[in-house]
Each structure stands twice: as structure tokens, then as C-alpha cells.
């Protein structure tokens, strides 16, 4: 099995602050990985580096064999935590936008999901509620047939029913050739669909195991272990 993501001693310093400190990871294809840690642990920094939105200070990272750049952007699908889409565009225009720039975008899939969620493609983004906007963003990201999906808090601001739908979509979209990395606080909701989890603390990897290994060894859920490890 190939590794979709490999990084070695990856570090990002802001002056004296170490946002990421010598992170070494090998993530194979076909996994659903949870990137877990408290605020400021380096999750977002790591994800931004994967997306070439930040330059590492030290170390190296390769996605699909390439350093973050145009080649990786073709195979990485990113869902940021915030709403980042042009508010004045209609949903259908956004779909065309994604189709224009990403060769792996599956338009049928996108419209299928929109229909299931009863979102009218002819509406402008700015007239939609926050929750609906987030669903649209998720649909756009998941409609790409990417090799690596980076989801930053995908179920954060959404109601429980929508959460189920989102987790459902992630499972349904699963492919052995693709890996999904989910960064989130809502661990108990998401545990069941994860293969592996990575605990990040102060920019360092303090745990990297499969979900079942942890449950087996500790007799606890990931959520419970998290609370223990990161006790305030």
C-alpha cells in the first residue's frame, strides 16, 4: 500500500513559538484519519502546510510524491473551517467554477447531493443560512475525486441531523485510493468512522494508532482517552 502523505521532521516556527515541532508521519492510502488535539496544537498549521498555504520552517512533506504545489493541489481537496466561497455566486456557478479548475470534479455527484439535501442550485450563496452554506461547501469538496481530502471541522457548526448526513457522505465516498483526514473537536460523533487517529499536542505527535488498538488497549473510547490525555 502506498503512502499518500509522508512528512519528516516537519516544523513551523513563528519566532520562538513552535506551531509544529518535528512532526513525522506516514499516512497510507484508503484510510480515514482523525487529527485530534486542543486549540493551538498545530492541527490547522499542519493542514495549511499540506495545502501549500503555509511554508514549513524545517523538514519536508510529500503528498502523492510531490511537495505542496500545483501537482498536489490537483489531488488534494480541502474544506476549511470557515465559509470561503464567493457570496455573490449562485450554487450552480460555483459548481461550474470547480469544474473549470479541477479535472477530478464530478458534476453529477454534486447535483445529486444538492438534490438530496433539497438545495436549489439557482440560489445565491449569500441568501443561504450558515448551515446550508457549509453543506454546499462540503458537497463541492466531496464531489472531487481527490486522493486526499482534508476536512477542517466539517461537522462543527451543523445540527445533529446534518452531522449524520455529513458522516454518511464521508463513508459513502470512501475509496481505497483516497484518504480522508478529519480535524475535529467533536470526537464522539466521529470515532466510529475513523481508521486511525493522531493526537497532536503543542505541535508534536503524541499518539498515532488505530481506533481499535486504542479501544482494545485502554478499554476506553477515543473521546474518553482524549479527555484524559488533554485534561485541563
Amino acid at each position: 500500500m502506498n503512502n499518500i502523505l509522508e512528512c519528516e521532521n516537519l516544523s513551523k516556527y513563528y519566532g520562538s513559538t513552535k506551531a509544529l515541532d518535528s512532526v513525522t508521519l506516514n499516512i497510507p492510502e484508503g484510510r480515514i484519519v482523525g487529527l485530534l488535539g486542543p486549540n493551538g496544537s498545530g492541527k490547522t498549521t499542519f493542514i495549511k502546510i499540506c495545502n501549500d498555504l503555509l511554508t514549513p520552517t524545517k523538514g519536508r512533506i510529500r503528498i502523492g510524491g510531490f511537495e505542496p504545489g500545483i501537482e498536489t493541489k490537483k489531488i488534494v481537496s480541502y474544506l476549511p473551517e470557515k465559509t470561503y466561497l464567493n457570496n455573490w455566486m449562485k450554487v450552480s456557478e460555483l459548481i461550474n467554477f470547480f469544474k473549470d479548475f479541477y479535472t477530478d470534479f464530478n458534476t453529477d455527484k454534486a447535483y445529486d447531493m444538492l438534490n438530496k439535501l433539497k438545495i436549489d442550485a439557482n440560489t445565491r450563496l449569500k441568501t443561504l443560512s450558515k448551515g446550508t452554506k457549509e453543506k454546499v461547501q462540503l458537497i463541492l469538496v466531496m464531489s472531487r475525486e481527490a486522493k486526499l481530502y482534508l476536512l477542517d471541522e466539517p461537522i462543527g457548526g451543523v445540527d445533529p441531523a446534518a452531522r449524520d448526513y455529513i458522516l454518511d457522505t464521508i463513508i459513502k465516498n470512501y475509496s481505497e485510493n483516497a484518504t480522508v483526514i478529519i480535524s475535529t473537536h467533536l470526537i464522539s460523533d466521529i470515532e466510529k468512522i475513523l481508521d486511525d487517529i493522531i493526537f497532536l499536542k503543542d505541535g508534536q505527535v503524541i499518539l498515532s494508532k488505530t481506533v481499535d488498538e486504542i479501544r482494545d488497549e485502554s478499554g476506553k473510547s477515543i473521546d474518553a482517552l482524549f479527555r484524559e490525555v488533554f485534561r485541563c
Partner: peptide
């Protein structure tokens, strides 16, 4: 996997 809401690998 969808029915059980679990990871298809598992």
C-alpha cells in the same frame, strides 16, 4: 458500513 455508520475498512 453506511448503515452502521462505521468505517468501511473496519
Amino acid at each position: 458500513a453506511q448503515e452502521a455508520s462505521v468505517n468501511p475498512n473496519t
